[in-house]
Amino acid sequence: MAAGGDHGSPDSYRSPLASRYASPEMCFVFSDRYKFRTWRQLWLWLAEAEQTLGLPITDEQIQEMKSNLENIDFKMAAEEEKRLRHDVMAHVHTFGHCCPKAAGIIHLGATSCYVGDNTDLIILRNALDLLLPKLARVISRLADFAKERASLPTLGFTHFQPAQLTTVGKRCCLWIQDLCMDLQNLKRVRDDLRFRGVKGTTGTQASFLQLFEGDDHKVEQLDKMVTEKAGFKRAFIITGQTYTRKVDIEVLSVLASLGASVHKICTDIRLLANLKEMEEPFEKQQIGSSAMPYKRNPMRSERCCSLARHLMTLVMDPLQTASVQWFERTLDDSANRRICLAEAFLTADTILNTLQNISEGLVVYPKVIERRIRQELPFMATENIIMAMVKAGGSRQDCHEKIRVLSQQAASVVKQEGGDNDLIERIQVDAYFSPIHSQLDHLLDPSSFTGRASQQVQRFLEEEVYPLLKPYESVMKVKAELCL
């Protein structure tokens, strides 16, 4: 049975990233139509530049190519590739079939990587351009969430054990800070992308030097003109047959890092959902379990974690691919890159769409948070109580021993009897502590235990987050809708 299948058929496997999760716009960027249309555009740009620099290419040939950029006979191309065992030459023939007058000058002087690699770089750039505003929107939604809850005390956790208090907004800023680093890295790697350009079979530009009869300047002009037509500021000066596969490492490393950030955020949300302090959106008709109707599973956060793990592992592909590119190139890269580049971007696209949807509907339960604080705060307040007693004339050592005994009794009630923490009640009825009984409410005010959390939130948002989001103001209103 021949390899390949009808990918629109229910009898043929289709990647869930495309069929179930990723956005239509990201799927289109990695589609065959987008790819092969870009090949034709690159052939047109090459012909236009070659004509401008004096090669015998007519206006009629150029116009014929322009008129057929979208006229792609995919069936013919597939048949040609089956016959020739070469995808680029299959599309040269297919393009030439609908451009008979231009057929002889299509791909003039070029090698397969002229269309293959340059198209990949265009796709990487455009895919990054799709991700950047999506990530900015996630940051914006979380920034709104953090600002609104900047002063809401909550129990902090280290080692997932109760620690000092923080605020809900401050905790959210930990998430935002990681995503801001990801946004900066995505922008950097996007701006650092260079075009492969017009380089020939081993990167020496020998074929173009021959076409222009040894004119170095025209060869350099050709490279520059096509690079500018493709919208790049610069091209690699040095290439082998391909652009260095280190570029793929750079791009997928940034995406993998984004995956790590999203995994951490969504894990926190899942843990908070278990504590009943916070939940992701839950639709009115949504079913959490087929057997347990009360369940409210954090399905979206779980999906993000599941896909983020996949995204983090994909960076190993370009690392290994770059390491086995012998001399000017081997074909070890080809099949692998067809999979890992598309999957990385479709996965990143999915987790950003999902995280935006989550961040637009996060639900906080202040009463649950308050109750958990009441359970733990008495123990945390013991040092403040000791200091207040010393100020009232008591002995630190005597007070410490009193607190120690009462704390152990209260802990026994919590752990052995399943009761509430009654340390404060014990202190309130103990005559030894009568000098500070009137101060206990103040000493137990949760806001006095959150330090500068709310001020940190305000400063972080104003100095770091809002300036970073400013270039994306025009796209901030787009909502994230999930079908599944």
Rank of each mutant, 00 (worst) to 15 (best):
G4D: 10
G4Y: 14
G8E: 14
S9F: 11
F30M: 14
F36L: 14
R40V: 06
W45R: 05
P56M: 08
D59I: 06
Q63G: 10
E64D: 06
M65D: 04
E79G: 13
E79Q: 09
K82H: 04
R83D: 14
M89P: 01
A102D: 03
A103W: 04
H107A: 04
G116S: 10
L124A: 10
L124K: 11
D129V: 14
D129P: 00
L131W: 02
L135Q: 15
R137Y: 14
I139L: 11
R149A: 07
R149H: 08
P153H: 05
L155K: 02
F157W: 09
A163W: 01
C173E: 04
I176R: 03
Q177L: 14
L183K: 08
Q184T: 15
V189A: 03
V189K: 14
V189I: 13
F195G: 08
G197M: 02
S207F: 09
F212V: 11
D216F: 04
E220Y: 08
Q221T: 11
D223W: 01
K224Q: 01
M225C: 11
G231T: 11
A235W: 13
I238N: 11
Q241L: 01
Q241K: 02
Y243R: 06
K246P: 06
D248H: 05
S253A: 10
A256R: 00
G259S: 09
A260D: 04
S261L: 04
H263G: 06
K264P: 02
I265C: 13
R270A: 00
A273W: 03
N274A: 12
E277V: 04
E279V: 03
S290C: 03
S290K: 01
M292C: 03
N297G: 03
P298V: 00
E302N: 00
C304L: 14
C305R: 03
L307Q: 14
A308D: 02
L311A: 07
M316C: 10
Q320F: 08
S323E: 04
W326V: 04
W326K: 03
F327V: 12
T330S: 12
L331F: 00
R337H: 10
R338C: 01
C340W: 02
A344C: 02
I351F: 11
N353P: 07
N353Q: 12
N357G: 12
E360I: 11
L362Q: 06
V364Q: 04
P366R: 10
I373D: 01
R374K: 15
R374A: 07
Q375S: 14
F379N: 04
M380I: 08
A381F: 04
N384A: 11
I385F: 05
A388D: 04
K391S: 11
G393M: 00
S395C: 07
R396Q: 00
Q397R: 08
V405L: 10
L406E: 04
S407T: 09
Q408G: 07
S412L: 10
Q416K: 10
G419C: 04
G419P: 02
N421E: 09
D422I: 14
L423E: 08
L423N: 07
E425Q: 11
Q428E: 09
Q428V: 09
A431E: 14
A431N: 12
Y432V: 12
S434Y: 14
H442T: 13
L444N: 03
L444S: 07
D445S: 15
G451S: 10
S454F: 15
V457T: 15
Q458C: 10
F460K: 00
P467L: 13
L469R: 06
K470M: 15
M476E: 15
V478A: 13
E481D: 15
